[in-house]
Simulated scan of single mutants.
Amino acid sequence: MTLYTSETVDGAIQNALQQLQLDKSQVEVTVLTQPRKGFFGIGARKAKVEVKPAVKDQPEVADHQIDETPSAMDTKTTIEPEITTDSESKPVTETTEGPTVDRQAEYRQVATELNQYLSEIVSQLGIDATSQVEVKHRHVTINFETEQEGLLIGKHGRTINALQSLAQVYLNHKRFSKLEVTLDVASYRERREETLTRLAENMAREVVATGKPVYLDPMPSFERKQIHSVLADNEHVMTYSAGTEPKRAVVITLR
């Protein structure tokens, strides 16, 4: 992995482009560290980025070549069953193996831009943090590292959940609504998942014991889905959501 540094992110990218003798459209950029001026020079740091040549596009095959050459069809990945095309349709860009190389490059690019956007917001909150981006198929995960974990997570996860909702809005605005994003810090999501699982099981036992429904505290949609999932196969209780955002909550009641 080759890293490039400068006083600014753009400067680090320009240094990389000069050394690689490429333009920005030919590379993939991952921002590893945002620059910081520090206080009278104390705690200052330079921007650090990883720049590598982008994966070249696969050569296109003309429509008549696809129709007339069986070997060309054999080399293409199987198309997802739900995607249907005819002879006049545009070429399919996604396969059962996931998005094509071109689409994955677009996902990585918008994920990098999202990371820069969030890093600026976190910095404005007074939180000193670094972040790493991971893109797998249609899911973006951004892991933050900071000594101010409690401040970034917030009470009951409100701060990091708000940032995650903002991140999803950003992707939707960029026309990448099919991408899902998860923000994490210090394995908070894993710990929160364990907490929600215990909560769902305990409240289900209470409903069975008392015969009365239980209304959980409002939570974001992805956490409500987990509660529903945990109790989906429970023979004694059922769940549903009630209320309107942002106060929509899960209700557990006898089946």
Rank of each mutant, 00 (worst) to 15 (best):
214 V>S: 09
61 V>I: 15
219 M>R: 05
157 G>D: 03
131 S>D: 06
187 S>Y: 07
200 A>S: 07
14 Q>R: 09
211 G>F: 05
71 S>C: 00
51 V>G: 00
2 T>G: 10
217 D>G: 03
16 A>Y: 02
241 S>K: 05
119 S>I: 02
158 R>I: 06
103 R>C: 02
178 K>R: 09
180 E>R: 15
202 N>I: 09
84 T>H: 10
130 T>Y: 06
95 T>M: 04
180 E>L: 15
30 T>F: 00
5 T>C: 07
137 H>Q: 15
95 T>V: 02
230 V>L: 08
215 Y>K: 10
84 T>K: 12
245 E>M: 05
172 N>K: 11
234 N>C: 08
187 S>H: 13
95 T>R: 10
200 A>K: 07
78 T>H: 03
195 T>W: 05
33 T>Q: 14
4 Y>F: 14
167 A>W: 07
205 R>Q: 14
226 Q>V: 06
253 T>Y: 09
241 S>N: 02
224 R>Q: 08
251 V>C: 06
168 Q>S: 06
173 H>Y: 11
213 P>Q: 07
152 L>D: 09
173 H>Q: 13
240 Y>R: 15
140 V>Y: 00
203 M>K: 13
72 A>V: 14
180 E>H: 15
55 V>M: 08
18 Q>S: 11
77 T>C: 08
32 L>A: 13
100 T>Q: 12
89 S>E: 08
120 E>T: 15
141 T>H: 04
161 N>K: 04
243 G>Y: 02
148 Q>P: 00
84 T>D: 07
66 I>E: 02
183 L>I: 13
212 K>C: 04
15 N>T: 00
124 Q>M: 14
41 G>D: 01
61 V>P: 00
54 A>D: 01
168 Q>A: 07
189 R>P: 04
191 R>M: 12
17 L>A: 06
241 S>Y: 03
200 A>E: 04
73 M>V: 11
11 G>L: 02
32 L>P: 04
27 V>F: 08
24 K>C: 03
116 Q>R: 12
42 I>G: 01
252 I>C: 10
151 L>D: 01
123 S>G: 15
63 D>Y: 14
186 A>S: 15
69 T>K: 15
52 K>T: 08
168 Q>G: 03
215 Y>A: 08
141 T>P: 03
61 V>R: 07
54 A>N: 01
170 Y>G: 14
71 S>H: 04
83 I>R: 04
110 V>W: 14
161 N>Q: 10
106 E>W: 00
